[in-house]
Write a protein that binds this DNA or RNA. Structure first.
Lengths: 101, 101
DNA sequence: GCCAAAGTTCGAAAAATATCGAACTATCGA
DNA sequence: TCGATAGTTCGATATTTTTCGAACTTTGGC
């Protein structure tokens, strides 16, 4: 079982990144990965069926936002901080910064 | 004929902004408005039927990205630069910056 | 008042996404 | 080897978006 190929930084498409981040669950996942460094899928699932969680992680992966490393049976996900920063400087800091509600 | 109410800066939702910008046509409109300052809908339409153009402008407006001013029969659109910058510092500069392809 | 221009709104149809259960794969431990 | 655990994949359905023509509104000019 192989993941979709990790897009190289220069292959990351801004529209795809925006689409990935337009979903509240996915945005939340990105924020938590930023806080926690690495996390398994289930650690971030919010009571959803796993097929749904898996779908959202796939979208994040395909957009180039996260990287997934298989550690035994669990998959550890991490934000591709440096690569995203390289490709779209300032985007992540804007996504991750706390804002007044 | 009245437009949907202009969301106040603090009402602008990041997910909605991302969704609005995830469409190539809308992203292009935002970039051109940034360059040209103000433009009518038809000046930015790319050979689409006007109902389609109108739809995309509505999405941009509802997300809080643009402001529309009626000047006679034509509607002049402008990017809400300062308000977006206030709400999500750095976002616009990241969207507007040229990147190597 | 009439007409054209610029958009909006409506409605229906097409396309893209999301959701979720079920079956499947891979890995670890007993 | 047998489970159990962690995810993925598949397929079907539901929801959301997009698209576009037709009808409508508003404004300006004649």
């Amino acid at each position: 079982m192989r993941h979709a190929r990790l897009p190289a930084p220069e292959e990351i498409v801004l529209e795809d990144v925006f689409h990935a981040l337009s979903d509240p669950f996915r945005l939340q996942v990105v924020r938590r990965l930023a806080m926690e460094g690495e996390a398994s899928c289930q650690a971030l699932e919010g009571d959803r069926p796993k097929s749904s969680v898996s779908h959202h992680f796939r979208v994040l992966r395909a957009a180039g936002l996260i990287r997934t490393r298989n550690e035994g049976a669990t998959h550890m996900n991490a934000l591709r901080r440096d690569e995203i920063e390289e490709r779209f400087p300032g985007l992540l800091s804007c996504v991750l910064s706390k804002r007044p509600e």
